[in-house]
Design a protein around this nucleic acid. Sequence first.
DNA 1: GCTCAGGCAGGCT
DNA 2: AGCCTGCCTGAG
Length: 278
Amino acid sequence: MQYFQRDNCVEIINAGEFDPVKTFECGQCFRWNADKNGVYLGVAMKRAAKVWKTGESVFISGTLEDFENIWRDYFDLDRDYGALRKSLNTDEYIKKAADYGAGIRILRQDKWEVLCSFIISQCNNIPRIKKIIESLCERFGEPLYFEDKTLYAFPDAAKIAGLTEKELEPIKSGYRAKYIIEAANAVASGAIDLDMLASGSCDQALRVLKGIEGVGDKVAGCVILFGLNILDAFPVDVWIKRAITANYGEGFNPKIFGKAAGLAQQYMFYYARSNSTA
DNA sequence: GCTCAGGCAGGCT
DNA sequence: AGCCTGCCTGAG
């Protein structure tokens, strides 16, 4: 990967395996939104940034220092996605899905943010998930001043821990409020150490995360894949369920995808969604 | 009004 | 193990 400072941003050249649109729209994150020119504005890791692609270059606003300290890791730029993608060649369907999703990267997001966001996602639609998360950030997150706007960082678990359901009511998360608070309490108190889970196994993390009320297989799987960056996690939601039924049937086991199972899941999700909503 | 949306838990068979 | 149902809320 080659990159250099250019005006007020960093340019990554020959970014064939980095497609910002696919990366932001494949269901792993909720706080990156495109303007009418296709430039994404988002908040992550307590920073705001703009990200866009022109030709074969990806541009990320900010300094070289921020790029090297934050965004290089956040966009998982040191992993060889080309090799992982090409390893998904065990059947025609996954080959097609992987080809279609080329450029998707699995973000290394803040672990608590992923846990909280996917608790909110349950039985909810994407616009409303985003709305609830933005509302949570506006009310409890630290303000960030970016260009002419005021944006808000995702609030730390410690900030949410100890809130009452009543205090969380304005964000309209409904019955999920008590799950959010319980998860915040567990993380803030250290009862659950997300950083430690990230260095353990998928099964271990699954067991611990499911100990939180309101966290089942799907939410835990998303936290493991998108937050802990354990790529053999394979969260199954309704889209993936449909894709499995249509292409594999009974007895499907994500282990056929080996170490790239989580990435396979993202390709399947993106492929399934794009081909039914487009 | 009604149903549904990117789940979960608890109780049932 | 698998099947059912209620759950906050807002959009269609």
